[in-house]
Simulated assay, not measured.
Amino acid sequence: MQELNLKALNTEFINKEPEEAIRFIVEKLGVSNVALASSLSIEDQVLTDMLLKINPKARIFVIDTGRHFQKTYDLMDETMLRYKFNFEVYAPESADIEEYVSKLGPNFFYESVELRKKCCEIRKVKPLKRVLSTVDGWICGLRREQSPTRQDMEIFEWDEGNSIYKINPIIFWSEEKVWEYIKAHNLPYNSLYDKGFRSIGCQPCTRAIQPGENVRSGRWWWEDPDKKECGLHLGGHSSVK
């Protein structure tokens, strides 16, 4: 794996288009050694479009938690047909699900923050670690505007938890700019966005929000907004390696 000067890269790419950051990392690390993590969000649909235009053989994966909305699965189908490619799909270990649901019931994640994080670990984090063990870098659709926990993230980072590079090409984009790209390129998106959803995850932990609420306030709405994350993006990040 090549050693990259992340501080210099973040200075160089701060005013460049996201496609340039994507093309750079794919060329540096190799198309088989970089993967885009897609939750089928509007941000990830934008990155899917950009990445596949750069390299149609690019790797894009989805973590199927088993609790997604049907609309999310419908969009997954539509996206594969649109671009004539297949997502890599990773799922939780059945033994983990069986153990916790048998002991605590199907809705145990509502009982405490600790149990909710355990559910996220089983359904999201462990499958994520499996796929990230096969690459040297991953691309994410994170934006600073989304959450207080994302205010310090940069375009190029070192993911200490997974010992790989992490690239956030649209970290400085606004939600409005994401929608502008979606509409300009006529990209497929989850129809739940038209019903008041602005951040879509597992069905039991996601709800529509009211005008003026934070974009992620519909996720784990019963928790402190300054701290809530599922664990996928809390691996310890640095812009200097």
Results as ranks from 00 to 15, higher is better:
Asn86Gly: 04
Ala37Ser: 13
Phe85Met: 14
Arg82Trp: 07
Ala58Asp: 04
Phe85Trp: 12
Asn33Ser: 06
Thr79Phe: 05
Asp64Gly: 04
Phe85Glu: 08
Phe61Pro: 08
Lys53Pro: 00
Ile42Tyr: 01
Glu78Val: 14
Ser38Thr: 13
Pro92His: 12
Asp64Lys: 09
Leu51Lys: 04
Lys84Leu: 00
Thr65Gln: 10
Ile63Gly: 02
Asp49Glu: 10
Leu36Ile: 11
Leu29Phe: 00
Lys28Val: 04
Glu78Tyr: 10
Leu47Arg: 06
Ala35Trp: 10
Asp77Asn: 15
Phe87Met: 07
Glu43Tyr: 07
Lys53Asp: 08
Arg82Glu: 10
Thr79Gly: 04
Val62Lys: 09
Tyr83Val: 07
Leu36Cys: 05
Lys84Pro: 00
Phe69Trp: 15
Leu40Thr: 06
Phe69Arg: 07
Tyr73Thr: 08
Arg82Cys: 01
Leu52Asn: 06
Leu75Asp: 08
Tyr83Trp: 10
Lys84Ser: 08
Lys84His: 09
Leu36Ala: 00
Ile25Gly: 01
Val89Asp: 13
Leu75Tyr: 10
Lys53Tyr: 04
Met76Thr: 04
Asp44Thr: 13
Ser39Phe: 02
Pro56Ser: 07
Ala58Pro: 07
Ile63Lys: 09
Ala91Asp: 07
Asp64Arg: 12
Ala91Thr: 15
Val34Ser: 10
Ser32Leu: 01
Thr72Pro: 09
Met76Pro: 09
Phe87Tyr: 15
Lys28Trp: 05
Gly66Leu: 12
Lys28Asn: 01
Leu52Arg: 13
Pro56Val: 05
Tyr73Leu: 15
Ser39Glu: 02
Leu29Tyr: 01
Ile63His: 10
Ile60Arg: 08
Ala35Ile: 11
Ile60Pro: 07
Ser32Pro: 00
